[in-house]
Design a protein around this nucleic acid. Structure first.
Lengths: 249, 249
DNA sequence: ACGCATCGTGTATGCTATACGCACAGGGGT
DNA sequence: ACCCCTGTGCGTATAGCATACACGATGCGT
C-alpha cells in the first residue's frame, strides 16, 4: 500500500485510511486482515467491555489473529482509537427538512447525535487532538450546516450554531448517559437522577452552595422527565432568536 | 483515618477526600505524604508532560517517595485522576454581577472556565462517570447558577442554561484549545486555524460536503478572530431570548 | 522462474498498575 | 514505663500492556 498524492499532501496514515486515499497493494499475499475488520472488532470490544479493557491483544483475539498482525494495518493504538471514533460516528441521518423547517431538522439531528453516544459511550472518553479532519465527524457537521441552509445566517454563524449543538449533546451524553439506552430507558434514567438528587442533598453544604441547594429543593432531580428534550428546546429557542434577528435585519 | 458518618452515607474514598470528610488519624506515625501533595504533583506532571505519560511511578519520583507509597493515600490511578480534575478546577471567580447584569456575569464565568481548560488541557481527556458529585465542578455550577439569580428563570431552566454554557466552553476548548494560552496566543491560534482551513480544503470533496465547502470558501477559518467570544455572544443571545420570554410572561 | 513488496507472527523489551507482606512509628490505655 | 494497635512507607512480585524487530511465507510483475 502506498500513499496516493493527488489529494492531501502528507496526511497521517489514519486520515488516509478514513478518506479512502490508499491504493491497493499489487505485490504480496492477499490480506486476510483489514483495517475495517480491526476497527469493527475494536468497536465491538469497547461496546461490550468498555474502553479501559480495550487492548491490542483482545482485539486480535477476537479476530483470531496474532497481536502483532494488527500493526500491519494500524500504526498504533492511538490511531486505532481515532479510527474507532470516526467509524462509530457512522453516517448522519438524511434530513429532508430544509429552509424554514430548520428547527425540526436540528432537533432530529440532535437526537440522532445523542443516540451515537448512547450506543458507544466510550467515544466521549477519546479525545482527538485539534479540530476534526475525519470524515465521520465532519459529515455530522455537514448535515447540521445543511439544515441551516435556509436560515440566512452567515457561514461563521452557522458554524457557531453547530458548535453549540455539538457541545450541548456531548455534555448531556456525558452527564446523564452512563446508563445504556437499551431497556427501560426512562425508568433507569429516573432512578439514576433521583438517587443523584439524594446523594447531592446529602453531600452539599447548604450554606456554601445556596443556588445548588435551591435546585435540589425544587426537586429538579427527582421528577422523571425528558431532560435532554427540555434543554434542547431552550437551545433551539436561542438559535431561533438569532435567526429572527438576522431575518429582520 | 476513618470515615465520618454524619454526612454522606458511604461515599467513595475519593469524594470523602474532596469534601474533607476524613478525620485525622490518632495513632500511627505522622504522615510524610498527603493526598494534597500527591494530587499537586500529579497535576504538575500532567501539565508538563501530558496525561499519556502520567504514571504512578513518575508522580512518586517527583515527590521522592516510592511508587507504592502513593497507594496509602490514593486507592487507584482512576481515583487520582478524579482528584486531579476536581482540584484543577480550582475555585470559580467571585462574580459581583447580580440581577439583570447576568449577561456580563456569565461572560466572565465562561472566560474563566475556558482558562481552566487552557491551563490544564488534560482535564478534557478524563471523564468521570455519571453526574458530578465533586466540589470543584459543583462550585462552578453554583457560581453560574448564582449569576442567574435575578433572571426569573425556573430552577430547571437555570440548570439547562448552565449545561449549555458548560457544553459550549468544553467543546470550544477541545476543538481549538490545543495551543497553550501563554505567549502569542492569538497568533498561534490564527496560524492553527489557517492551516486547518487549508488542510480541510485539501481533504474535503466539494460535492460530498457542499455546506462545509461553503464554509471553507467563505474563509471562515482563515481570518484570525475571537472565535470563542463570537460564539459566546450567540449563546448569550439565546439565553437572553429565554430570559426575556420569561419576564414578559 | 526469479525478485521483491507485502503479509502474518514469535520473541523480546521495557513499562505499567497494583496485590501482598514486612518493618517501623508513635500515641492511648494500662 | 510498658505494650498494643492503627497507620505508614516501601521492597518484591505478578500480570498485563504497547510495541520494536527479525524471520518466514506469499504471490504479482517481470
Amino acid at each position: 500500500m502506498t500513499t496516493s498524492e493527488h489529494r492531501g499532501g502528507d496526511l497521517p496514515h489514519g486520515l488516509e485510511v478514513l478518506w479512502d486515499l490508499r491504493e491497493k497493494a499489487q505485490r504480496g499475499p492477499r490480506e486476510g486482515l483489514s483495517v475495517e475488520r480491526i476497527v469493527a472488532a475494536a468497536i465491538a470490544s469497547a461496546d461490550e467491555d468498555g474502553l479501559a479493557s480495550l487492548s491490542m491483544a483482545r482485539v486480535a483475539k477476537r479476530l483470531d489473529f496474532a497481536t502483532m498482525s494488527l500493526y500491519r494495518h494500524v500504526s498504533s493504538k492511538d490511531e486505532l482509537q481515532m479510527l474507532m471514533v470516526d467509524v462509530a460516528y457512522g453516517t448522519p441521518p438524511v434530513l429532508t427538512e430544509t429552509g424554514d423547517e430548520w428547527r425540526a431538522g436540528l432537533e432530529k439531528w440532535a437526537r440522532a447525535f445523542l443516540e451515537v453516544f448512547r450506543a458507544h459511550p466510550w467515544m466521549l472518553q477519546i479525545t482527538v487532538a485539534g479540530p476534526p479532519l475525519e470524515p465521520g465527524q465532519l459529515s455530522w457537521l455537514e448535515c447540521g450546516l445543511r439544515t441551516l441552509g435556509g436560515t440566512g445566517l452567515r457561514p461563521d454563524e452557522k458554524l457557531s450554531v453547530m458548535l453549540l449543538m455539538i457541545g450541548y449533546v456531548r455534555t448531556n451524553a456525558q452527564l446523564f448517559g452512563s446508563s445504556p439506552a437499551v431497556d427501560g430507558e426512562d425508568a433507569a434514567d429516573a432512578d439514576l437522577m433521583a438517587s443523584y438528587g439524594k446523594m447531592l442533598a446529602n453531600i452539599v453544604a447548604r450554606d456554601a452552595f445556596p443556588a445548588l441547594s435551591e435546585l435540589i429543593e425544587a426537586h429538579t432531580f427527582d421528577e422523571p422527565k425528558d431532560d435532554f428534550g427540555f434543554g434542547l428546546e431552550r437551545v433551539l429557542d436561542g438559535i431561533d432568536a438569532l435567526v429572527r434577528s438576522r431575518v429582520t435585519q
